[in-house]
Design a protein around this nucleic acid. Structure first.
Lengths: 346, 346
DNA sequence: CGGCGTACTGGCAACGTTGTCAATCGCTCC
DNA sequence: GGAGCGATTGACAACGTTGCCAGTACGCCG
């Protein structure tokens, strides 16, 4: 059949070019001289198979290099794929990588694998990925929303694919959600600065279009208003996307006529840029940054951070998802994880 | 047919408890009054379907919330699953997260998704995961080896599942491999220190059991030997698993009778610990660290790093894998990515 | 006006597996 | 000594989809 030379003359290297068809249960059954069903029983460790048949089947399995076809199994038995989908913004981002790690850990205890995809903040891509994952019949979905309309998922949820949103709320869909206390954290940060006597506090943020950033800004403004401080619009800087921009904006603020005495940074990329500029100048302006990060305590200049447990975010969302997969159909919940102010220098 | 109440009275929330069977092509066909085959044609954008039938099918699809079953499609058509597997040590580790991100990016351009799993350096778990992935009929596998025997994969490769190893070589299997120039990088680092007049150079490493660490140590020792320096065994410290240990070991070395004047750290976790201790003491000992990391230039004390392109590691491995998936059956290759010495202070 | 190519549609088998059910065999139990 | 039970095995259909092929209707060529 195969037009190859004697297999014994094959080199040690695997020969990927071989047009070998994967052996099926039928092949194994033929070789072992039993029925397909018996092979099925053996490979699934089902009871009631005589030992000698088990041995013969197992021998045939290794001789042929048989590996069961999970797709066929899942299709026929109508069971779970033992796969969940995770759609995040970008795997390379340490925040999402940590979330993914926590999710993977929980999934692993449930014997399921993780299909990860990056939406890159593109709502259309997010939708495509999610529907693709549904076609792959994942047992459940974890989503860090990029878009603002997730009504297209309602059908899927109704058809039995549970969805849990994390870090940001879903749009137009009542579903389980796990969030951080962005507002509370920001308020605590600003109050910390206020307590130290600061009145001119600059806020640097990535983009108000992103839920978490908007929440953090909202919390900051609320705390300021509470203290009777009418925010100077010049002290709020939007569109600070990376550390370099953050450094420039910091410099710009410090060089202004009425410079701030304190900075509130809404994410760690921004914090890094602000620290760098404050340090370069030897400025004694205070800094509170949202997001702690690994080497923050080794930065050349201490600053206070609003810390939270990123792993816990992923863990809770994953646990919730598995509860749903296991049949829990109580009403959707929203969990808000606390943040903690870690004071360091000033 | 369904014994439910009017769907219009459903609450806005998705009702996960509904025992709804997922509609199949048969359901859609019934509803649209066409054959299953026609539904198949429509959902696959096949030509030769009259427009009015297309419309009716599409309407039925949305009304029923039909989503094609990818498992069945793949099973029947014998085609690709558009999925590749990636087995790494730990997703949470920034190094692997970066690799995963690069792989995901390449995969995305090939319209395939990434199934990621962590071996946690356990060879048995590695094998289980890889075979599980094969059962899921992934189109290809990317592996950062944890074990030392990958002969069990030969059958899979022969059956048409290509495998590419990255960061470490495979055991007992001739396959595509993408590595870093660990030796060359370590040699360059040590030569850098030698050129600055250092003769007592301490080497701190995680575990010689890990391939990359052994290579880096080997390179360091080779460079020392080349310079006629017989390594003092007391200057080689194995088992430095985390920054704290690294700091302790550094302290220990500095407090010894004949302390080193320079340190060679074989990974970034160790580097962080060494820096911390050197800085704490105000020591002027030199430091060269393998692995650059994001904030290395903001550390309280400058040091030289051996840098490499982690993304490129993942990218090249993924590209290679897709070449194999696309049918390239040329002999296996081994790619070694260069490292670069980035001198910073001393 | 017969033949033929093109547009369109559906029936049926098959992908590789497992659930269901029936059949067989050897015993034990009244 | 036959009913009954547990152990063991296999035939067959089905999961949801697509490939293959047959069939219809239409228009156009010669």
């Amino acid at each position: 059949m195969a037009k190859r030379t004697d297999p014994a003359t094959e080199p040690e290297a695997a020969a990927p070019g071989r047009p070998a068809r994967r052996p099926t249960m039928v092949d194994v059954a033929d070789r072992a001289g039993v029925s397909v069903k018996t092979v099925s029983r053996v490979v699934n460790n089902a009871p009631y198979v005589r030992q000698d048949l088990v041995d013969r089947v197992l021998a045939a399995v290794t001789e042929l290099g048989y590996r069961s076809n999970g797709l066929a199994r899942t299709l026929r038995s109508g069971g779970a794929t033992s796969t969940i989908g995770l759609v995040i913004e970008e795997i390379g981002n340490p925040f999402y990588a940590t979330v993914a790690a926590a999710v993977a850990e929980v999934a692993s205890t449930h014997g399921t694998m993780l299909l990860t995809a990056s939406s890159e903040e593109d709502p259309q891509r997010e939708q495509d990925l999610l529907l693709d994952l549904c076609s792959r019949r994942v047992d459940g979905l974890l989503v860090v929303p990029a878009g603002f309309d997730h009504t297209f998922l309602r059908v899927e949820v109704e058809m039995g694919t549970p969805v849990v949103f994390l870090d940001r709320p879903a749009g137009g869909l009542l579903a389980d959600t796990v969030l951080l206390d962005n507002r509370g954290g920001a308020e605590a940060g600003i109050r910390h600065l206020l307590a130290r006597g600061h009145r001119r506090i600059a806020t640097l943020l990535d983009s108000t279009a992103v839920y978490t950033m908007a929440e953090r800004l909202g919390g900051a403004q609320h705390a300021l208003a509470e203290a009777g401080i009418t925010g100077d619009p010049a002290l709020i800087r939007d569109g600070v996307a990376d550390p370099d921009t953050a450094a420039h904006v910091t410099a710009d603020l410090l060089d202004s006529a009425d410079p701030p005495t304190a900075f509130f940074s809404t994410n760690n990329r921004i914090t890094v840029g602000v620290v760098r500029e404050l340090w370069r100048r030897g400025s004694d302006a205070a800094l509170v940054g949202f997001d702690d990060f690994e080497l923050s305590h080794l930065m050349p200049r201490p600053f206070t951070v609003i810390r939270y447990d990123t792993r816990e975010l992923g863990r809770q969302a994953a646990r919730l998802l598995f509860q749903r997969i296991d049949g829990d159909d109580s009403p959707p919940t929203t969990t808000v994880l606390p943040t903690r102010l870690v004071e360091r220098g000033l």
